[in-house]
């Protein structure tokens, strides 16, 4: 398991990186945290002639928080995002989700932007980008462009990024006031890619749900957002029929997703699982909606345990 020979480039600036990318074209690959790319190279599933290591490029490792959004630079590691308290205060969904990405050692190297550029259908962060209605900032030989998430993902492991383009940041939009979020997934082992996962957001005004949506991990080939407002909108939380509203939401999820069977689980199982995860995540999001941006509990900082699929639910049991 040794990679085929390649030429190594270590540009110091975005301009330099893009220049090299333009020069080598399809024969080049960007190396960020290497947590997906290096195994691919070692197994010779890909053998690019040039590796453009962006780890020495300056100015890519910032998290910028504005009143509207959280902008994450291309060299921010998953763990950097996870540990940033100000980021968590601005957009709790990021930490709620990113702790489910692999294990600490991998989060210490892997980048959130790399994860989005890699566009694995089983990745958590593409789904989060979608639910936050986010964008990807792309620099190419002709300058900078900002691509909305709907246009960024083309298929599993496929994006609109051209060979001469570098993703320099992603922008996650913050949630409107009164919005709570939650993330739930189930993996075979803690830290594995999820069999199914869901990110949800619910906006509550005056005790009534005004908007709700979900996006998914491992059950759609590209990120997609399902509007759950038809199921939950106008429902009062105190409503005795809220349970049936949750059932309706779960049913909508079941119909929306298109999971596949693999050696770890059947498609039917994943469909059931993601619907159930949604059902369990929604009340958590709602419970966070009022104090969503102030009193976030420690829930999201705990990494998962044996089959600890449900933050705050399953995770609380032994």
């Amino acid at each position: 398991m040794k990679p085929a020979p390649f030429e190594y480039h270590a540009p110091r600036s975005v301009e330099e990186a893009v220049a090299v990318l333009a020069e080598v074209g399809h024969d080049g690959k960007v190396l960020a945290g290497g947590q997906s790319l290096i195994p691919i190279l070692n197994m010779r599933l890909a053998s690019p002639g040039h590796l453009i290591d962006i780890n020495h490029v300056t100015g890519l490792d910032d998290i910028e928080i504005t009143s509207d959004s959280v902008r994450v630079g291309a060299l921010v590691r998953h763990s950097g995002l996870e540990r940033s308290d100000s980021t968590h205060a601005a957009l709790p969904l990021l930490r709620q989700a990113v702790v489910n990405v692999a294990h600490p050692a991998i989060r210490n190297r892997g980048t959130t932007v790399g994860s989005i550029a890699h566009a694995d259908a089983a990745g958590e962060m593409p789904a989060v980008l979608a639910l936050c209605d986010g964008t990807v900032e792309v620099v190419g030989p002709h300058g900078i462009r900002e691509v909305g998430w709907q246009h960024f993902f083309l298929g599993a492991l496929e994006t609109v990024l051209a060979p001469d383009e570098l993703a320099v940041a992603t922008r996650f939009n913050r949630m409107p006031p009164g919005t709570g979020t939650a993330f739930a997934e189930s993996a075979r082992r803690s830290g594995d890619y999820a069999l199914a996962g869901v990110a949800v957001r619910v906006t509550v005004s005056d005790g009534v749900v005004s908007a709700a949506a979900a996006s998914f991990v491992s059950v759609t080939d590209v990120p997609s957002v399902l509007d759950l407002t038809p199921a939950l909108g106008g429902r009062e939380l105190a409503d005795a029929g809220f349970g049936s509203a949750l059932d309706q939401a779960a049913e909508a999820v079941r119909e929306h997703v298109a999971p596949e069977t693999d050696i770890h689980a059947s498609a039917d199982y994943r469909r059931m699982l993601v619907a159930e995860l949604t059902r369990r995540a929604l009340p958590i999001a709602i419970s966070r909606s009022n104090a969503a941006f102030v009193h976030e509990s420690a829930v999201a900082t705990v990494s998962s345990r044996t089959n600890a699929a449900f933050e705050g639910l399953g995770g609380g049991r032994r």
């Binding site: 189930s186 059931m272 399953g314």
Partner: peptide, 13 residues
């Protein structure tokens, strides 16, 4: 052992 009544996840208690 505990099995989740819905998702059938298996946990050794």
């Amino acid at each position: 052992v505990e099995t989740d009544p819905v998702t059938a996840e298996i946990r050794i208690l």
